[in-house]
């Protein structure tokens, strides 16, 4: 029995919050190491267990992209010029875009730090992708999205069947002596596989209908209207909140208050809307103490970093002009190390 996917998502997102507060390469490296260690120690034999490596490569690509952009297009200028590329003059409408020119150590370090931060965030999400079971996560979708999540479940189970269907059609063709290859084979494959898939979907729909699927509870008109009002008010609140966020004139408390209120109303609408789907759970996904430990360890990592960052502690944000030698800040580092807790409570 592996852990609940919600616990992994909380753990990974909170670790990402910790990483988003710092550009200290030592601390970021520690976060990547913690995420990688947990991903390797706790992963299963599932096909998605290799996701961490893929996300790490994507992170390296982002770092490379940022460094190349800084070298070719310039940016932060500093005193320490490492080398100078030949500069290509651009017409005046290219508002301040520069090709080539001097490359400073400060600019390079800035690009490296920023890229490393993003790569760390991707590493956290990659670890979650490797650990959380997406099929179990689907079961925890809100009940108001019941129909949509059933459609996704159908998609996930049908995708492998398509391959089997394509194999069967090709075998039937070969038995009839049709050894077409390449584009022609693809064309002759397309129609039977598509028709087979569509027929299968109709058969599935008939089976679902005959078993009473899609039966919705009768919801009183008042509740329906309340749901609509909540959802509408929520989205309008979000719209106004986002406007305030982009405009920046209103006080941040009002803006974030509006955003939170909008999100709260929308979530309340979703919960109330779930009343039309009467269903019970077969084998509900348990949330045990191990899940709480995993989510809590992520919360401690995030809290330690956010606390030090908010109280103006040093060592989290690296200054590049002038260049600063990174040192490991103690409290955030200990907090991030707590996020190793999943290894201790993993269940085989």
């Amino acid at each position: 029995m592996t852990l609940h996917p919600g616990a992994w998502w909380l753990w990974g997102l909170l670790l990402a919050v910790a990483a988003s507060r710092t550009t200290n390469p030592l601390l970021l490296g520690l976060v990547i190491a913690v995420a990688g260690l947990v991903a390797v120690a706790c992963r299963t034999e599932a096909p998605w267990a290799d996701a961490y490596g893929v996300f790490l490569k994507l992170g390296l690509l982002i770092i490379a992209l940022r460094v190349v952009f800084h070298v070719l297009l310039g940016g932060i200028t500093g005193e320490t010029v490492l080398f100078t590329l030949p500069e290509i003059p651009l017409p005046s409408w290219a508002k301040g875009i520069r090709l080539g020119g001097p490359v400073s150590a400060e600019g390079l370090l800035f690009a490296l730090y920023q890229g490393l931060q993003l790569a760390t965030l991707l590493g956290c999400i990659g670890a979650v992708n490797a650990l959380a079971n997406p099929k179990r996560a689907l079961r925890s979708m809100p009940a108001a999205l019941y129909e949509v999540s059933v459609a996704v479940v159908v998609a996930l189970t049908t995708a492998p069947q398509l391959v089997a269907s394509a194999k069967a059609v090709r075998k039937a063709r070969r038995l009839r002596g049709d050894g077409a290859r390449g584009w022609r084979a693809l064309r002759t494959l397309l129609v039977p596989v598509l028709e087979d898939a569509l027929d299968r979907s109709l058969a599935l729909a008939a089976a679902m209908d005959s078993r009473g699927y899609g039966r919705t509870a009768s919801v009183p008109a008042g509740t329906r209207r309340l749901t609509s009002a909540l959802v509408l008010a929520g989205l309008i609140g979000l719209c106004v909140g986002i406007y305030g966020l982009l405009d920046g004139q209103a006080s941040p408390y009002v803006t974030f208050g509006l955003l939170l209120a909008g999100a709260g109303l929308a979530i309340a609408g979703l919960r109330l809307g779930a009343k039309r789907v009467p269903r019970t759970r077969y084998r509900p996904d348990p949330w045990r103490w191990q899940e709480s430990v995993v989510a809590g360890s992520g919360a401690i990592a995030a809290a330690a970093t956010v606390f030090v960052s908010a109280s103006g502690g040093s060592g989290l944000v690296m200054s590049v002009v002038p260049i600063e030698v990174p040192t490991l800040p103690l409290i955030p580092a200990l907090g991030v190390l707590v996020a190793l807790a999943p290894i201790a409570v993993r269940t085989r």
Binding site: V148, T158, Q161, L194, A197, S201, A205, M208
Partner: peptide, 16 residues
């Protein structure tokens, strides 16, 4: 309805 759900599932599967 169930037809829409099944059709969505199959088309998403082909896409995926």
């Amino acid at each position: 309805d169930s037809k829409a759900v099944a059709m969505l599932g199959v088309l998403s599967a082909i896409g995926a």
